[in-house]
């Protein structure tokens, strides 16, 4: 008797809660600008749903969603097998947009954009190429007068998805890098100096002659920084652009695993930009609150229909058509 009373109370409460749904998420900082725009626009579409997102970093996002502290997470690097095994709440990866990492440099008096081979970038950070006039750099840049000064490699000192993508790329193109350093949100850099955030790396490169670093494409584009082209798997030097990134994703989509945990660095295709990656939302497979799962499903549907089209205007690369179609099928399984 009392139990049914209590149940009636709980049902009553939850039906009130359903009328104004608060969904909390946390994770990656890289997609934060577009996520916050999407969430505020989606609130206009469905005024009952408020999605809050805190950009605490991919590591924090994975931890919090795995422990059930937040309703969804976001990450720039896919969860590894150990993390999936250890998670209390099982999640699925939903790719949302793509980002790219570009090499930046400061060579006073240079008015031409430089070309970089993947192995040259790896060897700069391994300390094996230490002068700008190294023959291998000169070979990629015929006709450019490179100075005989020491290169100052600059890297991200804070753990970041940007570093994950960059080191993932270097691990693929240089076996020595894969063996000595590997890929992670932060790694043991053989040489160079660390600066915090894209702004830290960009600031250091901008004011130190002969510095070399890497930043997100979106950061370089918004701050109008010159950046170099990188040779892709097909042997072409490609300057990063949202089209080039989406093309790399389309090339990788053909061999896309069902859980979307795929690295698209060093992708095939003449126009593919090689240092690119998906960024993912982590959605619980079985939500504790079905109403929240419904709302999240609705948001993801809206994102595919309307959100993706806005990505390019904010210098994020949208998902290729094939991936959008398969994501549409995947979100049906959320319940």
């Amino acid at each position: 008797m009392r139990l049914s009373f209590l149940l009636a109370g709980v049902v009553g409460l939850s039906s009130i809660a359903a009328s104004a749904q608060n969904i909390n998420g946390a994770g990656a900082t890289f997609p934060y600008p577009i996520y916050s725009r999407w969430f505020s626009e989606f609130a206009k579409v469905d005024s009952n749903v408020h999605i809050n997102y805190q950009s605490i970093g991919s590591g924090g996002g994975i931890r919090q969603v795995s422990e059930g502290t937040v309703d969804f997470g976001a990450t720039d690097g896919p969860m590894n097998d150990d993390q999936i095994k250890g998670a209390k709440i099982k999640t699925i990866h939903i790719p949302t947009v793509l980002g790219a990492v570009v090499p930046v440099y400061n060579l006073p008096g240079l008015n031409k954009e430089l070309n970089f081979s993947p192995d040259v970038i790896a060897d700069i950070y391994l300390g094996k190429i230490s002068k700008w006039n190294d023959p291998r750099l000169a070979k990629d840049n015929p006709g450019v007068n490179l100075p005989a000064d020491a290169i100052l490699p600059v890297y991200r000192s804070d753990g970041s998805g940007t570093t994950y993508i960059f080191t993932d790329f270097l691990s693929k193109v240089s076996s020595e890098w894969a063996q000595k350093v590997g890929k992670n949100t932060s790694v043991k850099w053989p040489t160079g100096i660390g600066q915090k955030g894209n702004e830290g790396v960009a600031g250091m490169v901008r004011q130190s002659p002969h510095a070399f670093g890497y930043v997100e494409l979106i950061y370089a584009a918004q701050n109008k920084m010159p950046f170099g082209a990188v040779r892709n798997a097909s042997g072409q030097f490609v300057r990063a652009s949202t089209e080039g990134v989406t093309e790399a994703a389309a090339a990788a989509a053909k061999s896309m695993p069902a859980d979307y945990r795929v690295s698209i660095t060093n992708a095939q295709g003449a126009g593919s930009y090689p240092i690119a990656s998906f960024t993912w939302l982590l959605i619980p497979e079985h939500a504790t609150d079905p109403a929240k799962a419904k709302a999240m499903q609705a948001f993801l549907g809206w994102m595919l229909d309307h959100g993706e089209a806005e990505a390019a205007s904010m210098t994020y690369a949208p998902l290729p058509k094939a991936v959008q179609d398969s994501v549409r099928k995947t979100i049906q399984s959320i319940h």
């Binding site: 991919s58 924090g60 150990d82 993390q83 000192s157 804070d158 753990g159 998805g161 949100t185 915090k196």
Partner: peptide, 17 residues
């Protein structure tokens, strides 16, 4: 590198226990 700096730099993205 200093003790305080490495915590500030790496704590938010530290993956793995």
């Amino acid at each position: 590198y200093t003790l305080a700096s490495v915590i500030a730099n790496e704590f938010s993205e530290a993956t793995g226990d």
